[in-house]
């Protein structure tokens, strides 16, 4: 559920990058941070352990479009993928508006992908949420690996819910399909919000970009 600040006329949406450990969530968000113009983005806050693994989350605020005079902001989070940090994942998932599930395409990691996806469903269930109501996309990462699993099998494992989700073959280290996945989930989130609140469509991007800079 987005946070609406009437005083500052802002709507904040929360996008969470979820997935198993070492699947490329932090790399993905670091790439996004590096590609966005400084005017649009805030600082990338990364709470990492000494070993450079995500301890709590990575956080990246991004200014976006104008909706009914309200400036929209997207807050991008990652969760720690390690199994032991489940409480942290539950905390980060609170009030989530959209999810990008980052799956590792390596054959040896597929089981962890499935476990992580189940964990996501379980954690959402604890918050009385479900993937049926939250927009999400699948980012099949590390597609440049020589030993990458087939897309059909990944779809069979992770994209076999009642409603088919959009899936992207990504290489986070090179930025391939990183923005495509983010853009897709963002659009779904915005459309859901517009639909639920019976709002008008936002202004074209040129105006909104100018407004965002102001």
């Amino acid at each position: 559920m987005p946070i609406i600040n009437y005083a500052s006329k802002e709507i904040q949406f929360k996008i969470v990058y979820y997935g198993p450990a070492l699947s490329g969530k932090t790399t993905t968000i670091a790439y996004i941070h590096s590609r966005l113009p400084a005017a649009f983005r805030g600082d990338l806050v990364s709470l990492a352990t000494a070993a450079d693994r995500t301890l709590f989350f990575d956080f990246l605020p991004v200014d976006a479009v104008i909706l009914q005079g309200f400036k929209t902001k997207f807050q991008l989070y990652t969760v720690p993928g390690q199994v032991v940090y489940n409480t942290t994942r539950q905390l980060v998932l609170r009030s989530v508006d959209g999810i990008v599930f980052v799956a590792d395409s390596h054959w040896d990691k597929i089981h962890e992908d499935v476990e992580s996806f189940r964990n996501l469903e379980e954690n959402l269930r604890k918050q009385h949420l479900s993937l049926d109501e939250i927009p999400y996309v699948l980012q099949y990462n590390k597609r440049d690996l020589p030993d990458a699993a087939s897309i059909s099998y990944l779809d069979f494992l992770l994209n076999n819910r009642r409603r088919r989700a959009r899936s992207y073959e990504a290489i986070a280290t090179k930025g391939r399909s990183v923005f495509a996945a983010l853009d897709a989930v963002t659009q779904s989130v915005l459309n859901k919000f517009i639909q639920e609140n019976h709002l008008l469509r936002p202004a074209p991007a040129r105006e909104s970009a100018t407004a965002a800079r102001v």
Partner: peptide, 22 residues
């Protein structure tokens, strides 16, 4: 299984980089 949901396009700050990358 129902097909992927097709949503109307809304320009976001991520649309342009996505096209560039593509």
């Amino acid at each position: 299984q129902e097909p992927e949901e097709v949503v109307p396009s809304i320009p976001t700050p991520f649309t342009a980089p996505a096209r560039e990358d593509t």
